[in-house]
Design a protein around this nucleic acid. Sequence first.
RNA 1: GCCGGAGUGGUGAAAUGGGUAGACACGCUGGAUUCAAAAUCCAGUGGCCUCACGGCCGUGCCGGUUCGACUCCGGCCUCCGGUACCA
Length: 832
Amino acid sequence: MSSIYQAESIEAKWQQRWQEDGIDEAHESADDERPRYYCLVMFPYPSGQLHMGHVRNYCLGDAVARYKRMQGHNVLHPIGWDAFGLPAENAAIQHKQPPAAWTDNNIAQMRGQLKGLGFSYDWSREIATCKPDYYRWEQWMFLRLMEKGLAYRAKAEVNWCEPCHTVLANEQVVDGCCWRCDTSVIRRELSQWFIRITDYAEELLQDLDQLDGWPDRVRDMQRNWIGRSTGAEVRFPLADSDGYIDIFTTRPDTLMGVTYMAVAAAHPLARQAAENNPALAEFIEVCSDVSTKEADMAQMEKKGMALGIDAIHPMTGERVPVWAANFVLMNYGTGAVMSVPAHDERDFDFAQGYGLPIKQVIQPADAEWDMSNGAFTDAGLLINSGDFNGLGSDEAKTAIINHLQAHDAGSERVQYRLRDWLVSRQRYWGAPIPVIHCPDCGVVPVPDADLPVVLPEYLQPTGGASPLVDCEAFMNVDCPRCGQAAKREADTFDTFMESSWYMNRYTCNQHQDAMLDADAMRRWAPVDQYIGGVEHAVLHLLYARFYHKLMRDAGLFSEEDGGKEPFRHLMTQGMVLLDGAKMSKSKGNTVDPQLIIDRYGADTARLFTLFAAPPEKDLEWNDAGVEGSYRFLGRVWRLMARGEDGVTGKDDADACRTMRRIIHQSIARVTHAFEHGFAFNVAIAALMELSNHLQSFTATGKQGQAVLREGLEALVCMLAPFVPHIACECGQRIGMETMAVLAPWPSVDAQALEESEITLVVQFNGKKRGDVRVAKDADQDQVMAKVHQDEELTRWLDGMQIAKIILVGGRLINNVVRPQGFGCAYYSPCYY
RNA sequence: GCCGGAGUGGUGAAAUGGGUAGACACGCUGGAUUCAAAAUCCAGUGGCCUCACGGCCGUGCCGGUUCGACUCCGGCCUCCGGUACCA
């Protein structure tokens, strides 16, 4: 046994041993009575190399999975590859090699890196989403969604990214730019495939309330994204024709203050009016050109132009002019608004700019409002509103909606910000959308029997349009309905489709008969602990929740078996930073995990990422810190030699008792970290302290050796979830019977925690002035007797009288003192 | 604007059913070991005052509650994240 810690040989040895013994596989057998636990980390895109973000994510997951195993759980801890996506196409262009080969290579490379880090994955569950036996079920599901009308094709104004040469879903537009390449997206009108996530908006919103294992931050982000608002839909008939304008408002109480209407430039009424109005046509043209980035729109000057038509106010029957305005969005609500300048800042600005009338209908409950101050946007009391005068805003909303409903002019309405999920992409390296375009039959779904629609893997992308379009072998097909020559859909699915259901496929990755195996879902789903980056808060994490519900509603599992939600607990880890900035290839500020592994070993890399910061916070990379983690492992390694000392000297009963107390306090602290909030940085600090104490433990008699051994074993076991290789090697070295990673988690001996004598802090007026040793359950008089024996402490009583004494059991005693003769003295015992 | 979260030493951070502020580490300083270095080990390390004993101050700012506040309450400031002409 080497006296020097040599990570490389230790790690290779144990990785091989774990693999041979198959200790990381999840057990399906019904005989296995252990409670099941499903620990999942966000699977990686196979870019070719792990980055530090991956390493951090997987170190956290592995610590949880290993801890749960040691606690006696049957753990499912799978890994796979989110293998479709644009980088493969770009790499293919660069290397003149089809994306499939590049992707397979990368997977092999990264699989080797993950194994080299010693993560305890059940490799028999590995999936790659680019394989037909995976994506065929996605195609199958899409056909079910088409049958239900939940998947549909529609012409709409969509986000287009020119460099990526494809459309994007709303969730994939970040600050007006493409989430992947950061280029400004432009708006284009195209026919695309959508999935009706808006049908599930209410359930997705409601169920957030029960996700108490999720960070509030993520839940709030999803609530914001879904953006529910309640109000009314109101119909304004046109004055001189048969048409009407429907609007949505959250303030029906201000209805009597409407002085004009505003519609989006792209609204049908605006376009119609523009036919005979060149100036208006030009205005509409300008609006559609400008409004690329939503962020810019907020800065834009409010501009508009009258359409030259009037609408009829549904309450008063008055005529109100209709304007086209650049601040009204065609794709929110109905693309038209009622304008109440007195009570909406935006409408107020617009009305002032164009000299439109302002009519106040709400006033503060206890004051007048001066309209020269601008719009009054708070709730208040109704005025100038006929029968509704004197009502409060809330009552008025109900009353006005009731009135509208009675006159068939409007109704209560809930509006969501969430829009349907655009799932088609003009890309090659993705799952083909299983539909066929027939000149006569139109869009025809591919029959189930013809699934999967296999993506030809040999094509060479060029960077522009997808090579699928020109691939006749793929494109040309007979219409399944009428048999004549037809074309396949050349678009592929958004890659978020694959990552929306992989968590459930892991439970039954070999299942050939269906998308999911209901029995396997009953055994494993939902995921107990999910771990990944917060950047997916409204992307993957929203889609996966939605898709889980779609799968439930397709009858693939019952809510009882698979859960209403796919992820019970969620941990979102912080980013890995270098010099304060997120590590990224484009910025060139990366640290290659492989270099750290090569230099210090996997255990050092694992330890540092867990110790340097609490999981949810950003982690600043620090080479000196890595060095420190390596040194700690060296100290642990050398500490183990003490287990071989044998009985060399005398025992010290007090030292042994103290040492045992520290051992069991450490067990309590580390266990607490796993059970509450995963503060691994603190857990590891506790292990460092334990290690330090064991090193300086001096009792070398028979009892001392037994205590030392107990401490060493506890240390080895508790290190195992974090640094499994060195833990196993140390365990073997000190002669533990079971491999450290298979050992039962140490339990706390409550008796060992008890102390007969404790140190109590002594305060005067809340300030610490010293401490005394007293019996564990000493009462106030006994403590004070000790205090009076201590010269250092009694001098704080010189010339003072004690007004009050507070004894906090086990912690401190506080003497409230004041100068003698100051006020009236009293002495009241006070026990907390 | 609205909704979250966070502000603690030179650095990463501990400590919140109110109870010793700065655990654990990094860095730095000094020492031991060494021909020398690396490695290792020991000691010190919030600021200010003091030869020292010791004292005073100190958790973004201002106030409050309390015997006692990083922790609770009220009012601000700054930073980060989300969202937004959303009607």
